[in-house]
C-alpha cells in the first residue's frame, strides 16, 4: 500500500506532536492537514475528503471520540486514534465507537506507518469488489468459497463457531477487534455472549492454527482489548535497535 499522495488529517492539540508528525509523515510524501481542536477538525472533515484521520482523544474543546462517532455517520474514512491514555477501557471505547486502530503514545514511526498502511488497505478493499478466492496470512490460508482452512498446506477442521471467528478476524485482518465486536460478529446481536466465551473459543482456535499456541504468530491478544489477526505489515514490530550494553551477570 503506497502512502504517497494520501491526504491525512492530523487532529492533535500538542504543537510539538503535530510538528513531529508533519515532518515524519511529510517525508513519506503524505499531504498533511492539521487541526488543533475538535471544532477545527469538524470544519475540515465537512469541507473536504481525507484518506485517513489520525485522532488524538484529549482535545481542549472535547473528546476526540465525538469526532469518530460523527465521522462514522457519513464516511468510512479510516480513523487511527493516537492517545496518551494507557487505560484499556479507553481503547475499547475508541474501537467500539468506530475507530479502526489505536496507538498509545509514545509510539515508533514504523509502527504508525504500518498501522496506516493496514487501515488504508482496508478502506480500499471495502470500497472494491469481493475478496479474492483464497486469502493468505503467513502460513494460514482461508478459502471462503470452499470453506477450507489450511496451515502450511495441511487442512484444519474448524467448528462452525471457530470458522466464523476466523472469518471475522480475516475480514478485519491487522486490526484489533474488541471482545464485544467479536461476540456480535460471531454469535449475532441477539445473544448475550460474555468475554470469556470469546476467550475460550479463541484458545481452541489457536490450538488448531498456531504452531505454538503459547507463542502465537497469527492470532494476537491485545490484553484487556481484544484480538488481532496478524498481517505481514505488522509483523515487523521490533524497530528498536538492540541495546548495545553488554549484559551484566547477576
Amino acid at each position: 500500500m503506497k502512502l504517497e499522495g494520501k491526504r491525512v488529517l492530523v487532529v492533535e492539540d500538542e504543537p510539538e506532536m503535530r510538528r513531529f508528525l508533519r515532518a515524519a509523515l511529510g517525508s513519506h510524501g503524505l499531504e498533511i492537514v492539521e487541526a488543533a481542536t475538535l471544532g477545527a477538525a469538524t470544519r475540515e472533515v465537512t469541507s473536504r475528503s481525507f484518506d485517513l484521520v489520525l485522532l488524538d482523544l484529549g482535545l481542549p474543546d472535547g473528546d476526540g471520540l465525538a469526532l469518530a462517532a460523527e465521522l462514522r455517520g457519513f464516511t468510512g474514512v479510516p480513523i487511527i486514534v493516537l492517545s496518551a491514555r494507557r487505560r484499556e477501557d479507553d481503547k475499547v471505547q475508541a474501537l467500539d465507537a468506530g475507530a479502526d486502530d489505536y496507538l498509545t503514545k509514545p509510539f515508533g514511526m514504523n509502527e504508525l506507518l504500518a498501522r496506516m498502511r493496514v487501515a488504508l488497505r482496508h478502506a480500499e478493499r471495502a470500497a472494491r469488489a469481493p475478496e479474492p478466492a483464497v486469502e493468505h496470512f503467513g502460513p494460514l490460508s482461508l478459502d471462503r468459497a470452499r470453506r477450507r482452512v489450511e496451515v502450511s498446506g495441511r487442512e484444519i477442521r474448524l467448528t462452525p463457531t471457530e470458522y466464523r471467528m476466523l472469518g471475522l478476524l480475516a475480514d478485519h485482518a491487522g486490526r484489533v477487534l474488541t471482545h464485544r465486536q467479536i461476540a456480535q460478529g460471531v454469535w449475532g446481536e441477539s445473544r448475550t455472549v460474555e468475554a470469556h466465551h470469546v476467550r475460550v473459543h479463541m484458545a481452541l482456535l489457536r490450538k488448531k492454527l498456531e504452531a505454538s499456541p503459547a507463542r502465537p504468530r497469527l492470532l494476537l491478544t491485545e490484553p484487556g482489548v481484544g484480538y488481532r489477526l496478524c498481517e505481514p505489515d505488522l509483523e515487523t514490530r521490533a524497530e528498536l535497535p538492540r541495546s548495545t550494553d553488554p549484559h551484566p551477570e547477576e
Binding site: 470469556h196 476467550r199 503459547a214 507463542r215 490484553p223
Partner: peptide, 27 residues
Amino acid sequence: EWVPVDELVGAALTRLESELESRPITT
C-alpha cells in the same frame, strides 16, 4: 475476568518478542 492461562502467557511473550528473541523458550 475468566481467562485461559495460555492467552495470558501468549500475550506476555508476544509483548516481549524483541527482548526474548535470542532465547530458547519452552512452555
